[in-house]
Amino acid sequence: MIPIEYWLILSSLLLAIGVYGVMTRKNAIVVLMSIEIMLNAANINLVAFSSYYSSLHPNLGTDATGQAFALFSIAIAAAEVAVGLAILLSVYRRYQTIDVDKINILRW
């Protein structure tokens, strides 16, 4: 059994990598990918806590709620990527670029 801390450190690292990508990369597709990474960090946490919870309370049997949530989240993420890519496509058609620094009309 791998201790829960290891999972948490892994997911933290993934989240940090995702945040770093979201914050620094100019290419919107890379930003989108970074968001997916962050999402997966959360999924790892869900699964990890699910199993940890079961190990703490062996008399309750296996509780799969967290894992079900993770699956649900993955499905949502897929839809989200589809929507996000569609937006990016129309942005690209409109501005001929997907550099997020150039797409800043949402300001004062």
Binding site: V100, I103, L106, R107, W108
Partner: peptide, 17 residues
């Protein structure tokens, strides 16, 4: 204050974090 509203989503995200 409105200068903060730069339209740069990445900066918003940074600020949130």
């Amino acid at each position: 204050i409105r200068k903060a509203q730069s339209g740069n989503v990445q900066r918003y995200a940074s600020l949130i974090i």
